[in-house]
Amino acid sequence: MGSTDPWMIAEVAGPRRASVITKAEVADAIIRRARHPLLIVGSLSAEIEVDDRKLIDYLVLLAQKGGIPVVATAQVGKDLLERDLTPDRQMAAVDIAQRLADPLWKGVDGKGPHDLAMFAGLPYYLTQTVLSGLKHFAPAVKTMTLDNVYHPQASWSLSNLSLRDWVTTLRSIIENLEE
């Protein structure tokens, strides 16, 4: 498998494919540059084990260190609360995608439209469909995925990474945000 093959083999998007984030610093630069980023945390984040933790633990750290508002999809809000993070909204993935596509929407915190939406921990195919909706109908919103698989429908995606490389990348992104 190449580093930029879609994880699900048939999820071939079309002419416009995600740029690959090759280094954690790139992800950090994208987050820092965003005026109003948003983190969308999916149900699988509470199941996926990354090293000695769950994916959700890294996402909580990312949100806290970066001061990034959070949308919890499905029932993952409960898992966030257990980690002392109150999500700004609990919404279905397709619901938040539709809101993001509205340039007049004031955002989950009422502070204005989001210009960067980060996704992690949703089923791969659902992430793909949601990202596709945003790619086509939310020109003002850039998308970035933090799963360890390549998502061609995003604006930026991590490549297909081993668990070890993924841990390193996530830790680096979080540490860099602290600086």
């Binding site: 079309g14 416009r16 397709v94």
Partner: peptide
């Protein structure tokens, strides 16, 4: 709210057309 499966239309011989 549309979530296209792919970026293209390939239903006629004009295509494939990129509708991105």
């Amino acid at each position: 709210f549309y979530m296209p499966f792919c970026d293209l239309c390939c239903l006629c011989t004009y295509g494939k057309c990129d509708l991105t």
